[in-house]
Design a protein around this nucleic acid. Sequence first.
DNA 1: ACATAAATTTAGACTAGTCTAAAAATATAT
DNA 2: ATATATTTTTAGACTAGTCTAAATTTATGT
Lengths: 219, 219
Amino acid sequence: MNSLAEENYLKALYKLGGKSNEVQTNALADKLSTKASSVTDMMKKLSDKKLVNYEPYKGVSLTKEGYAIAIGVVRKHRLWEVFLVDKLAFKWDEVHEIAEQLEHIQSAELIEKLDEFLDYPKFDPHGDPIPDKNGKIYQHLEVTLSQLEKSEKGIVVGVKEHSKAYLNYLDNLNLMLGTEVFIEDKVEFDSSMKVKINNAEVVTISNQATKNLYIKKLN
Amino acid sequence: MNSLAEENYLKALYKLGGKSNEVQTNALADKLSTKASSVTDMMKKLSDKKLVNYEPYKGVSLTKEGYAIAIGVVRKHRLWEVFLVDKLAFKWDEVHEIAEQLEHIQSAELIEKLDEFLDYPKFDPHGDPIPDKNGKIYQHLEVTLSQLEKSEKGIVVGVKEHSKAYLNYLDNLNLMLGTEVFIEDKVEFDSSMKVKINNAEVVTISNQATKNLYIKKLN
DNA sequence: ACATAAATTTAGACTAGTCTAAAAATATAT
DNA sequence: ATATATTTTTAGACTAGTCTAAATTTATGT
Ligand SMILES: [Mn+2]
Ligand SMILES: [Mn+2]
Ligand SMILES: [Mn+2]
Ligand SMILES: [Mn+2]
Protein backbone atom coordinates (compact mmCIF):
# COMPACT_ATOMS: atom_id res chain seq x y z
CA MET A 1 0.00 0.00 0.00
CA ASN A 2 1.20 3.48 -0.83
CA SER A 3 0.84 6.54 1.35
CA LEU A 4 -1.18 9.58 0.39
CA ALA A 5 2.04 11.52 -0.22
CA GLU A 6 3.42 8.80 -2.46
CA GLU A 7 0.21 8.69 -4.47
CA ASN A 8 0.31 12.43 -4.97
CA TYR A 9 3.87 12.31 -6.25
CA LEU A 10 3.01 9.52 -8.66
CA LYS A 11 -0.03 11.34 -9.94
CA ALA A 12 1.96 14.55 -10.46
CA LEU A 13 4.59 12.54 -12.30
CA TYR A 14 1.87 11.18 -14.55
CA LYS A 15 0.47 14.63 -15.22
CA LEU A 16 3.88 16.01 -16.10
CA GLY A 17 5.47 13.09 -17.89
CA GLY A 18 2.69 10.76 -18.92
CA LYS A 19 3.48 7.12 -19.35
CA SER A 20 7.25 7.42 -19.71
CA ASN A 21 8.60 10.95 -20.19
CA GLU A 22 11.37 12.21 -17.95
CA VAL A 23 10.34 14.84 -15.43
CA GLN A 24 12.74 17.27 -13.75
CA THR A 25 13.00 17.68 -10.02
CA ASN A 26 12.01 21.33 -10.03
CA ALA A 27 9.02 20.76 -12.28
CA LEU A 28 7.70 18.18 -9.84
CA ALA A 29 8.41 20.43 -6.87
CA ASP A 30 6.45 23.24 -8.53
CA LYS A 31 3.52 21.00 -9.36
CA LEU A 32 3.29 19.77 -5.80
CA SER A 33 4.04 23.12 -4.17
CA THR A 34 6.94 21.62 -2.32
CA LYS A 35 10.72 21.98 -2.35
CA ALA A 36 13.22 20.31 -4.65
CA SER A 37 14.94 18.67 -1.70
CA SER A 38 11.69 17.03 -0.66
CA VAL A 39 11.25 15.73 -4.18
CA THR A 40 14.73 14.21 -4.19
CA ASP A 41 13.99 12.41 -0.92
CA MET A 42 10.73 11.03 -2.25
CA MET A 43 12.25 9.96 -5.57
CA LYS A 44 14.75 7.84 -3.67
CA LYS A 45 11.95 6.20 -1.78
CA LEU A 46 9.82 5.58 -4.87
CA SER A 47 12.87 4.31 -6.68
CA ASP A 48 13.50 1.80 -3.90
CA LYS A 49 9.90 0.69 -4.30
CA LYS A 50 10.47 0.37 -8.06
CA LEU A 51 7.70 2.85 -8.84
CA VAL A 52 9.99 5.32 -10.65
CA ASN A 53 13.19 5.24 -12.68
CA TYR A 54 15.50 7.69 -11.01
CA GLU A 55 19.12 8.58 -11.67
CA PRO A 56 20.52 11.53 -9.71
CA TYR A 57 20.65 14.73 -11.78
CA LYS A 58 18.94 13.01 -14.70
CA GLY A 59 15.25 13.37 -14.00
CA VAL A 60 12.70 10.75 -13.20
CA SER A 61 9.97 8.75 -14.95
CA LEU A 62 7.29 6.29 -13.94
CA THR A 63 7.88 2.55 -14.11
CA LYS A 64 5.12 0.35 -15.42
CA GLU A 65 3.97 -0.27 -11.89
CA GLY A 66 4.21 3.39 -10.92
CA TYR A 67 2.18 4.31 -13.96
CA ALA A 68 -0.50 1.80 -13.02
CA ILE A 69 -0.81 3.32 -9.57
CA ALA A 70 -0.89 6.87 -10.92
CA ILE A 71 -3.57 6.05 -13.45
CA GLY A 72 -5.58 4.38 -10.70
CA VAL A 73 -5.52 7.57 -8.65
CA VAL A 74 -6.58 9.60 -11.68
CA ARG A 75 -9.41 7.14 -12.29
CA LYS A 76 -10.64 7.53 -8.75
CA HIS A 77 -10.36 11.32 -8.86
CA ARG A 78 -12.42 11.61 -12.01
CA LEU A 79 -15.05 9.07 -11.03
CA TRP A 80 -15.60 10.87 -7.73
CA GLU A 81 -15.93 14.15 -9.61
CA VAL A 82 -18.66 12.60 -11.74
CA PHE A 83 -20.39 11.40 -8.59
CA LEU A 84 -20.24 14.83 -7.01
CA VAL A 85 -21.64 16.59 -10.06
CA ASP A 86 -24.13 14.02 -11.34
CA LYS A 87 -25.45 12.66 -8.06
CA LEU A 88 -24.86 15.36 -5.47
CA ALA A 89 -25.48 18.36 -7.74
CA PHE A 90 -22.17 20.09 -7.17
CA LYS A 91 -21.06 22.52 -9.86
CA TRP A 92 -18.02 21.69 -11.95
CA ASP A 93 -15.93 24.35 -10.26
CA GLU A 94 -16.61 22.98 -6.76
CA VAL A 95 -15.51 19.37 -7.00
CA HIS A 96 -11.75 19.31 -7.47
CA GLU A 97 -10.70 19.88 -3.85
CA ILE A 98 -13.07 17.23 -2.54
CA ALA A 99 -11.94 14.76 -5.21
CA GLU A 100 -8.35 15.43 -4.14
CA GLN A 101 -9.29 13.83 -0.85
CA LEU A 102 -11.57 11.09 -2.14
CA GLU A 103 -9.00 9.86 -4.67
CA HIS A 104 -6.99 8.38 -1.80
CA ILE A 105 -9.71 6.14 -0.38
CA GLN A 106 -8.43 2.59 -0.60
CA SER A 107 -10.91 -0.01 -1.81
CA ALA A 108 -10.87 -1.61 -5.21
CA GLU A 109 -14.41 -2.86 -4.72
CA LEU A 110 -15.65 0.61 -3.84
CA ILE A 111 -14.37 2.14 -7.04
CA GLU A 112 -15.77 -0.64 -9.23
CA LYS A 113 -19.17 -0.28 -7.62
CA LEU A 114 -19.01 3.47 -7.92
CA ASP A 115 -18.16 3.12 -11.61
CA GLU A 116 -21.18 0.88 -12.09
CA PHE A 117 -23.44 3.20 -10.07
CA LEU A 118 -22.39 6.09 -12.33
CA ASP A 119 -23.01 3.94 -15.40
CA TYR A 120 -19.40 3.69 -16.52
CA PRO A 121 -18.80 7.32 -17.50
CA LYS A 122 -16.09 7.95 -20.10
CA PHE A 123 -15.40 11.57 -19.15
CA ASP A 124 -15.37 13.62 -15.98
CA PRO A 125 -17.22 16.94 -15.53
CA HIS A 126 -14.32 18.82 -17.12
CA GLY A 127 -14.19 16.60 -20.18
CA ASP A 128 -11.16 14.65 -18.99
CA PRO A 129 -11.14 10.97 -19.97
CA ILE A 130 -11.63 8.41 -17.20
CA PRO A 131 -9.24 5.45 -17.31
CA ASP A 132 -11.07 2.14 -17.30
CA LYS A 133 -10.54 -0.51 -14.66
CA ASN A 134 -7.57 -1.89 -16.62
CA GLY A 135 -5.90 1.50 -16.78
CA LYS A 136 -6.73 2.07 -20.40
CA ILE A 137 -7.26 5.75 -21.05
CA TYR A 138 -8.67 7.43 -24.11
CA GLN A 139 -6.38 10.24 -25.18
CA HIS A 140 -8.41 13.05 -26.63
CA LEU A 141 -6.69 14.59 -29.59
CA GLU A 142 -9.01 17.53 -29.78
CA VAL A 143 -7.72 20.93 -30.77
CA THR A 144 -8.02 23.99 -28.60
CA LEU A 145 -10.38 26.81 -29.45
CA SER A 146 -7.37 28.99 -30.22
CA GLN A 147 -6.48 26.66 -33.10
CA LEU A 148 -9.76 27.12 -34.97
CA GLU A 149 -9.79 29.42 -38.00
CA LYS A 150 -12.33 32.04 -38.97
CA SER A 151 -15.69 30.48 -39.91
CA GLU A 152 -14.86 27.12 -38.39
CA LYS A 153 -17.34 25.46 -36.08
CA GLY A 154 -16.88 23.11 -33.14
CA ILE A 155 -18.19 21.76 -29.86
CA VAL A 156 -16.66 22.32 -26.44
CA VAL A 157 -15.45 18.96 -25.12
CA GLY A 158 -13.10 19.82 -22.31
CA VAL A 159 -11.02 22.29 -20.34
CA LYS A 160 -7.26 22.29 -20.02
CA GLU A 161 -7.16 24.60 -17.03
CA HIS A 162 -9.21 23.63 -13.96
CA SER A 163 -9.07 26.69 -11.75
CA LYS A 164 -12.28 27.94 -10.18
CA ALA A 165 -11.62 31.34 -11.73
CA TYR A 166 -11.46 29.93 -15.25
CA LEU A 167 -14.47 27.65 -14.80
CA ASN A 168 -16.52 30.53 -13.44
CA TYR A 169 -15.43 32.68 -16.34
CA LEU A 170 -16.69 30.01 -18.75
CA ASP A 171 -19.97 29.71 -16.85
CA ASN A 172 -20.50 33.42 -17.27
CA LEU A 173 -19.97 33.14 -21.01
CA ASN A 174 -22.38 30.20 -21.11
CA LEU A 175 -19.54 28.09 -22.37
CA MET A 176 -19.94 24.58 -21.03
CA LEU A 177 -19.30 21.07 -22.28
CA GLY A 178 -21.44 20.49 -25.37
CA THR A 179 -21.70 24.14 -26.31
CA GLU A 180 -21.38 24.93 -30.01
CA VAL A 181 -18.89 27.60 -31.01
CA PHE A 182 -18.47 29.36 -34.33
CA ILE A 183 -15.49 31.62 -35.06
CA GLU A 184 -16.80 34.96 -36.26
CA ASP A 185 -13.39 36.52 -36.34
CA LYS A 186 -9.82 36.31 -35.07
CA VAL A 187 -8.07 39.48 -33.90
CA GLU A 188 -4.50 39.38 -35.08
CA PHE A 189 -3.16 41.93 -32.62
CA ASP A 190 -3.79 40.00 -29.35
CA SER A 191 -4.96 36.66 -30.76
CA SER A 192 -8.35 37.10 -29.11
CA MET A 193 -11.40 35.70 -30.90
CA LYS A 194 -14.96 36.74 -31.58
CA VAL A 195 -16.98 33.62 -31.00
CA LYS A 196 -20.68 32.96 -31.63
CA ILE A 197 -22.04 30.76 -28.87
CA ASN A 198 -24.83 28.27 -29.57
CA ASN A 199 -25.87 30.28 -32.62
CA ALA A 200 -26.78 33.16 -30.36
CA GLU A 201 -24.67 35.92 -28.85
CA VAL A 202 -21.15 36.73 -29.99
CA VAL A 203 -18.48 37.29 -27.37
CA THR A 204 -14.81 38.21 -27.41
CA ILE A 205 -12.51 35.69 -25.76
CA SER A 206 -8.87 36.28 -24.89
CA ASN A 207 -6.10 34.04 -26.16
CA GLN A 208 -5.38 33.01 -22.58
CA ALA A 209 -8.92 31.64 -22.45
CA THR A 210 -9.15 30.10 -25.93
CA LYS A 211 -5.91 28.19 -25.40
CA ASN A 212 -7.47 26.29 -22.52
CA LEU A 213 -10.65 25.07 -24.15
CA TYR A 214 -10.72 21.74 -25.98
CA ILE A 215 -12.88 21.67 -29.08
CA LYS A 216 -14.10 18.93 -31.36
CA LYS A 217 -14.34 20.37 -34.85
CA LEU A 218 -17.58 20.13 -36.78
CA ASN A 219 -17.82 19.80 -40.60
CA MET B 1 -8.81 21.65 11.17
CA ASN B 2 -8.06 18.43 13.00
CA SER B 3 -5.86 15.62 11.79
CA LEU B 4 -7.10 12.15 11.03
CA ALA B 5 -5.43 10.88 14.20
CA GLU B 6 -7.05 13.57 16.33
CA GLU B 7 -10.46 12.78 14.88
CA ASN B 8 -10.03 9.11 15.67
CA TYR B 9 -9.11 9.83 19.26
CA LEU B 10 -12.13 12.10 19.66
CA LYS B 11 -14.46 9.53 18.13
CA ALA B 12 -13.10 6.79 20.39
CA LEU B 13 -13.56 9.08 23.38
CA TYR B 14 -17.18 9.57 22.34
CA LYS B 15 -17.76 5.86 21.97
CA LEU B 16 -16.30 5.13 25.38
CA GLY B 17 -17.48 8.10 27.37
CA GLY B 18 -20.33 9.67 25.47
CA LYS B 19 -21.01 13.33 25.96
CA SER B 20 -19.17 13.78 29.24
CA ASN B 21 -18.06 10.58 30.99
CA GLU B 22 -14.46 10.18 32.09
CA VAL B 23 -12.43 7.69 30.08
CA GLN B 24 -9.25 6.01 31.29
CA THR B 25 -6.00 6.12 29.39
CA ASN B 26 -5.77 2.36 28.99
CA ALA B 27 -9.36 2.02 27.81
CA LEU B 28 -8.67 4.53 25.07
CA ALA B 29 -5.40 2.82 24.16
CA ASP B 30 -7.21 -0.50 23.82
CA LYS B 31 -9.98 0.97 21.73
CA LEU B 32 -7.49 2.52 19.33
CA SER B 33 -5.06 -0.40 19.35
CA THR B 34 -2.29 1.89 20.45
CA LYS B 35 -0.16 2.31 23.59
CA ALA B 36 -1.00 4.21 26.75
CA SER B 37 1.98 6.50 26.25
CA SER B 38 0.68 7.51 22.83
CA VAL B 39 -2.68 8.30 24.40
CA THR B 40 -1.09 10.50 27.02
CA ASP B 41 0.76 12.44 24.34
CA MET B 42 -2.40 12.95 22.34
CA MET B 43 -4.45 13.94 25.37
CA LYS B 44 -2.00 16.73 26.06
CA LYS B 45 -2.36 17.95 22.52
CA LEU B 46 -6.15 17.76 22.53
CA SER B 47 -6.22 19.43 25.91
CA ASP B 48 -4.14 22.30 24.52
CA LYS B 49 -6.69 22.58 21.73
CA LYS B 50 -9.46 22.60 24.32
CA LEU B 51 -11.11 19.54 22.83
CA VAL B 52 -10.79 17.42 25.99
CA ASN B 53 -10.68 17.94 29.74
CA TYR B 54 -7.54 16.23 30.90
CA GLU B 55 -5.90 16.04 34.33
CA PRO B 56 -2.93 13.69 34.64
CA TYR B 57 -3.86 10.39 36.29
CA LYS B 58 -7.53 11.37 36.39
CA GLY B 59 -8.91 10.30 33.06
CA VAL B 60 -10.21 12.43 30.25
CA SER B 61 -13.53 13.59 28.84
CA LEU B 62 -14.72 15.54 25.82
CA THR B 63 -15.32 19.26 26.00
CA LYS B 64 -18.36 20.68 24.30
CA GLU B 65 -16.28 21.43 21.24
CA GLY B 66 -14.57 18.03 21.27
CA TYR B 67 -17.97 16.38 21.48
CA ALA B 68 -19.22 18.36 18.51
CA ILE B 69 -16.29 17.21 16.41
CA ALA B 70 -16.66 13.58 17.52
CA ILE B 71 -20.35 13.54 16.73
CA GLY B 72 -19.59 15.05 13.34
CA VAL B 73 -17.23 12.19 12.54
CA VAL B 74 -19.83 9.66 13.67
CA ARG B 75 -22.40 11.40 11.47
CA LYS B 76 -20.11 11.14 8.48
CA HIS B 77 -19.26 7.51 9.17
CA ARG B 78 -22.88 6.46 9.36
CA LEU B 79 -24.06 8.48 6.38
CA TRP B 80 -21.32 6.97 4.24
CA GLU B 81 -22.34 3.51 5.42
CA VAL B 82 -25.88 4.21 4.26
CA PHE B 83 -24.53 5.35 0.91
CA LEU B 84 -22.44 2.22 0.51
CA VAL B 85 -25.30 -0.13 1.33
CA ASP B 86 -28.26 1.70 -0.22
CA LYS B 87 -26.62 3.10 -3.34
CA LEU B 88 -23.63 0.89 -4.06
CA ALA B 89 -25.16 -2.40 -2.92
CA PHE B 90 -22.52 -3.31 -0.40
CA LYS B 91 -23.56 -5.73 2.32
CA TRP B 92 -23.77 -4.54 5.90
CA ASP B 93 -20.68 -6.49 6.91
CA GLU B 94 -18.52 -4.91 4.19
CA VAL B 95 -18.88 -1.19 4.83
CA HIS B 96 -17.20 -0.38 8.11
CA GLU B 97 -13.58 -0.32 6.94
CA ILE B 98 -14.39 1.90 3.98
CA ALA B 99 -16.44 4.25 6.15
CA GLU B 100 -13.48 4.48 8.52
CA GLN B 101 -11.66 6.19 5.68
CA LEU B 102 -14.55 8.23 4.28
CA GLU B 103 -15.45 9.68 7.69
CA HIS B 104 -12.33 11.86 7.48
CA ILE B 105 -13.15 13.62 4.22
CA GLN B 106 -13.36 17.32 4.99
CA SER B 107 -16.25 19.19 3.41
CA ALA B 108 -19.32 20.38 5.23
CA GLU B 109 -21.12 20.88 1.95
CA LEU B 110 -20.37 17.35 0.82
CA ILE B 111 -21.92 15.79 3.86
CA GLU B 112 -25.04 17.94 3.70
CA LYS B 113 -25.53 17.06 0.05
CA LEU B 114 -24.91 13.40 0.78
CA ASP B 115 -27.49 13.53 3.56
CA GLU B 116 -30.01 15.02 1.15
CA PHE B 117 -29.13 12.50 -1.57
CA LEU B 118 -29.77 9.68 0.89
CA ASP B 119 -33.06 11.28 1.93
CA TYR B 120 -32.03 12.16 5.46
CA PRO B 121 -31.74 8.65 6.91
CA LYS B 122 -32.22 8.32 10.67
CA PHE B 123 -30.31 5.06 11.09
CA ASP B 124 -27.30 3.42 9.50
CA PRO B 125 -27.22 -0.15 8.11
CA HIS B 126 -26.51 -1.52 11.58
CA GLY B 127 -29.39 0.30 13.21
CA ASP B 128 -27.18 2.98 14.75
CA PRO B 129 -28.75 6.44 14.92
CA ILE B 130 -27.32 9.13 12.64
CA PRO B 131 -26.71 12.50 14.33
CA ASP B 132 -28.42 15.33 12.48
CA LYS B 133 -26.56 18.32 11.10
CA ASN B 134 -26.80 20.06 14.48
CA GLY B 135 -25.30 17.10 16.28
CA LYS B 136 -28.57 15.97 17.77
CA ILE B 137 -28.60 12.20 18.11
CA TYR B 138 -31.48 9.92 18.95
CA GLN B 139 -30.47 7.55 21.72
CA HIS B 140 -32.19 4.24 21.24
CA LEU B 141 -33.28 2.75 24.50
CA GLU B 142 -34.09 -0.62 23.06
CA VAL B 143 -33.45 -3.75 25.03
CA THR B 144 -31.19 -6.53 23.86
CA LEU B 145 -32.55 -9.87 22.75
CA SER B 146 -31.06 -11.44 25.87
CA GLN B 147 -33.39 -9.33 27.98
CA LEU B 148 -36.60 -10.72 26.48
CA GLU B 149 -38.54 -13.30 28.45
CA LYS B 150 -40.17 -16.47 27.24
CA SER B 151 -43.12 -15.82 24.89
CA GLU B 152 -42.18 -12.21 24.34
CA LYS B 153 -42.03 -10.85 20.80
CA GLY B 154 -39.90 -8.13 19.23
CA ILE B 155 -38.28 -6.70 16.13
CA VAL B 156 -34.56 -6.52 15.44
CA VAL B 157 -33.57 -2.85 15.31
CA GLY B 158 -29.81 -2.85 15.65
CA VAL B 159 -26.54 -4.58 16.47
CA LYS B 160 -24.21 -3.73 19.32
CA GLU B 161 -21.24 -5.62 17.93
CA HIS B 162 -20.10 -4.75 14.38
CA SER B 163 -17.56 -7.44 13.54
CA LYS B 164 -17.78 -9.16 10.16
CA ALA B 165 -17.95 -12.48 11.98
CA TYR B 166 -21.01 -11.49 13.99
CA LEU B 167 -22.80 -9.88 11.06
CA ASN B 168 -22.20 -12.96 8.92
CA TYR B 169 -23.50 -15.13 11.71
CA LEU B 170 -26.70 -13.08 11.81
CA ASP B 171 -27.03 -13.29 8.03
CA ASN B 172 -26.86 -17.05 8.22
CA LEU B 173 -29.65 -17.09 10.81
CA ASN B 174 -31.69 -14.76 8.60
CA LEU B 175 -31.61 -12.24 11.39
CA MET B 176 -31.51 -8.76 9.91
CA LEU B 177 -32.93 -5.37 10.77
CA GLY B 178 -36.71 -5.63 10.76
CA THR B 179 -36.82 -9.34 11.49
CA GLU B 180 -39.47 -10.46 13.96
CA VAL B 181 -38.32 -12.66 16.85
CA PHE B 182 -40.39 -14.68 19.31
CA ILE B 183 -38.85 -16.32 22.37
CA GLU B 184 -39.80 -19.98 22.36
CA ASP B 185 -37.65 -20.77 25.33
CA LYS B 186 -34.72 -19.65 27.46
CA VAL B 187 -32.13 -22.22 28.53
CA GLU B 188 -31.15 -21.49 32.09
CA PHE B 189 -27.86 -23.39 32.02
CA ASP B 190 -25.99 -21.27 29.45
CA SER B 191 -28.50 -18.44 28.94
CA SER B 192 -28.95 -19.38 25.30
CA MET B 193 -32.36 -18.89 23.70
CA LYS B 194 -34.62 -20.75 21.34
CA VAL B 195 -35.96 -18.09 19.02
CA LYS B 196 -38.62 -18.32 16.34
CA ILE B 197 -37.64 -16.14 13.41
CA ASN B 198 -40.28 -14.39 11.31
CA ASN B 199 -42.88 -16.92 12.43
CA ALA B 200 -40.93 -19.65 10.70
CA GLU B 201 -37.96 -21.72 11.83
CA VAL B 202 -36.75 -21.88 15.42
CA VAL B 203 -33.04 -21.53 16.12
CA THR B 204 -30.87 -21.63 19.20
CA ILE B 205 -28.82 -18.50 19.84
CA SER B 206 -25.99 -18.19 22.34
CA ASN B 207 -25.99 -15.57 25.07
CA GLN B 208 -22.92 -14.02 23.46
CA ALA B 209 -25.06 -13.41 20.38
CA THR B 210 -28.33 -12.38 22.06
CA LYS B 211 -26.52 -9.78 24.17
CA ASN B 212 -25.48 -7.94 21.02
CA LEU B 213 -28.80 -7.62 19.27
CA TYR B 214 -31.05 -4.64 19.93
CA ILE B 215 -34.75 -5.39 19.96
CA LYS B 216 -37.86 -3.28 20.00
CA LYS B 217 -40.50 -5.13 22.01
CA LEU B 218 -43.87 -5.81 20.45
CA ASN B 219 -47.16 -6.02 22.42
C1' DA C 1 38.15 26.74 -21.79
C1' DC C 2 36.66 28.96 -18.00
C1' DA C 3 33.54 31.59 -15.26
C1' DT C 4 29.03 31.95 -13.94
C1' DA C 5 24.36 30.49 -13.50
C1' DA C 6 20.92 27.05 -12.83
C1' DA C 7 19.48 22.68 -11.20
C1' DT C 8 19.95 19.11 -8.01
C1' DT C 9 21.49 16.71 -4.08
C1' DT C 10 23.15 16.42 0.69
C1' DA C 11 23.29 17.64 5.55
C1' DG C 12 20.94 18.65 9.34
C1' DA C 13 16.84 20.21 11.70
C1' DC C 14 11.86 20.11 12.67
C1' DT C 15 6.82 18.20 13.48
C1' DA C 16 3.30 14.56 14.05
C1' DG C 17 2.64 10.34 15.63
C1' DT C 18 4.21 6.22 17.42
C1' DC C 19 6.96 2.89 20.37
C1' DT C 20 9.76 0.70 24.51
C1' DA C 21 11.47 0.97 28.94
C1' DA C 22 11.74 3.26 33.21
C1' DA C 23 9.77 6.22 36.74
C1' DA C 24 5.98 7.91 39.31
C1' DA C 25 1.36 7.89 41.03
C1' DT C 26 -2.69 5.50 42.48
C1' DA C 27 -5.30 1.51 43.96
C1' DT C 28 -5.62 -2.97 46.48
C1' DA C 29 -4.86 -6.42 49.79
C1' DT C 30 -3.48 -8.18 53.81
C1' DA D 1 -0.05 0.70 57.50
C1' DT D 2 2.71 -1.17 54.39
C1' DA D 3 3.81 -3.99 50.54
C1' DT D 4 2.29 -5.14 46.03
C1' DA D 5 -0.08 -4.55 41.83
C1' DT D 6 -2.04 -1.61 38.45
C1' DT D 7 -2.29 2.51 35.90
C1' DT D 8 -0.34 6.42 34.00
C1' DT D 9 3.25 9.47 32.76
C1' DT D 10 7.95 10.60 31.30
C1' DA D 11 12.21 10.01 28.75
C1' DG D 12 14.22 8.96 24.77
C1' DA D 13 14.20 6.88 20.22
C1' DC D 14 12.25 6.06 15.63
C1' DT D 15 9.73 6.95 10.87
C1' DA D 16 7.47 9.79 7.32
C1' DG D 17 7.51 13.91 5.41
C1' DT D 18 8.95 18.46 5.18
C1' DC D 19 12.18 22.59 5.29
C1' DT D 20 16.60 25.75 4.93
C1' DA D 21 21.19 26.25 3.81
C1' DA D 22 25.27 24.51 1.90
C1' DA D 23 27.65 21.57 -1.40
C1' DT D 24 27.81 19.53 -5.78
C1' DT D 25 26.79 18.72 -10.52
C1' DT D 26 25.33 20.19 -15.00
C1' DA D 27 24.40 23.79 -18.35
C1' DT D 28 25.46 28.24 -20.59
C1' DG D 29 27.89 32.33 -22.31
C1' DT D 30 31.79 34.44 -23.86
MN1 LIG E 1 -9.99 17.57 -10.49
MN1 LIG F 1 -11.64 16.86 -13.51
MN1 LIG G 1 -19.10 1.32 11.09
MN1 LIG H 1 -22.55 1.34 11.43
